[in-house]
Amino acid sequence: MNATTSTTRATEVVLPGVVEPEGLQVRVRDLPAPGEGQVVLRMEATGVSFAEQQMRLGKYYDQPAFPFVPGYDLVGTVVAVGEGVDRGLKLHRFAVVTKVGAWASHLVVEAADLVPVPDGVDAAAAETVVVNGVTAWQMMYRTAKVKRGDTIVVLGANGGVGSTLVQLARHAGIKVIGTASARHHDAVRELGATPVDYRDPQLYAKIRELAPEGVDAVFDHVGGAGLKESWKLLRRGGTLVNYGTASTKDEPGNAMLPVLLLFARLALWNYLPNGKGAGFYNFWAGKRFRLTTFRARLRDDLTQVLRLVAAGVLTPQIAARIPLSQAASALALAESRTVLGKVVIVPEP
């Protein structure tokens, strides 16, 4: 198989340091030809996740040194292949998780990380469920292991992960109580959850009224002081799944200290003799030591989620589609916490 040797002109959005969203920079450069086992993807859709919001503040665990190109995941079309890669991949669409680098018109990725996107699924729709969908799927089925007839609580049911969790649970016959601001209650109800206002001082009391015997799982991306209340919502045999520390995102000081304290608290709760479980979901768990297993699990889980999108079971929640050159506006909108679903970045018109 012949590799592609020509270079590709790429437009990239650069995070130069700890800046406000308007401090993002746009650059154009020549990408090198893909190496062995690599491909060049032309971006069709990427997006703004909570990770980029943390990276902007220099508070995401293990983020690269500034400056770098953010972008956690994308959907794109293969336009060039390196040695050892099937040329039949060219002009086909794939999803890939990058952690960084996806806010670009073109980028080089490992062919082994590509996951096919079903024909007929819109690129932006598929983008909304790449990391969000895998996260929701794995937390439900690999971590909490919830089942039909269970009751769960989803904090931030209007968000990217939260809205996917609600729909997956509804499809599986699971009752959902979802927190969101009052303006999103109708949308959350339409997704299949019973909404509760997250600003209500009696939030947890209201949830207990809806589930007086406790719930089977709580999915909490907020952390902070409210985590204890999430733990107290569980019935015996229930599981608390924490997957973020949104409450400490804007706090000054060491970014890792709140995370370390969180890990310690979850570990302590997990070992209490009360039949409850607690843990922190880590999307990247096992990648460093079991790369082949990590890739296979990611491919399997994302394929399941994309099939549900293709079948109409999952309705991706797209908050907005914003061109790559306006990534600063996309980031600011996502950070405003006023939207339902995920802000998607698309190529220039």
Rank of each mutant, 00 (worst) to 15 (best):
D186P: 05
V146A: 06
V154A: 08
Y204P: 01
R148E: 15
H185D: 10
N158E: 14
I177L: 15
A169M: 09
H184E: 02
P201H: 03
L210V: 00
R183H: 15
A182M: 12
P201L: 01
I174F: 14
I207W: 00
T164P: 02
D200E: 05
R148Y: 11
V153D: 03
L155W: 07
R189G: 11
S181M: 11
A172S: 15
T179C: 10
H171Q: 15
V146Q: 03
I174V: 15
D150Q: 08
G149S: 10
A144K: 06
I174Q: 09
R183E: 14
T151P: 00
V166K: 11
V153R: 01
P201R: 02
A144W: 05
G173P: 06
V176E: 03
G156S: 09
A172P: 04
G149Y: 13
K147C: 13
T164H: 09
S181K: 13
H184W: 04
A187K: 15
L191E: 00
Q167Y: 12
D200S: 11
V153M: 06
K175A: 15
A144N: 06
L210N: 05
S163G: 10
G178Y: 14
A169D: 00
H185Y: 08
A187Y: 12
A157Q: 07
A187P: 01
A193T: 02
V176K: 11
R189F: 12
Q202G: 12
A144V: 09
L191S: 01
R170P: 00
I152L: 13
P195G: 06
G149A: 13
A205S: 10
D150P: 06
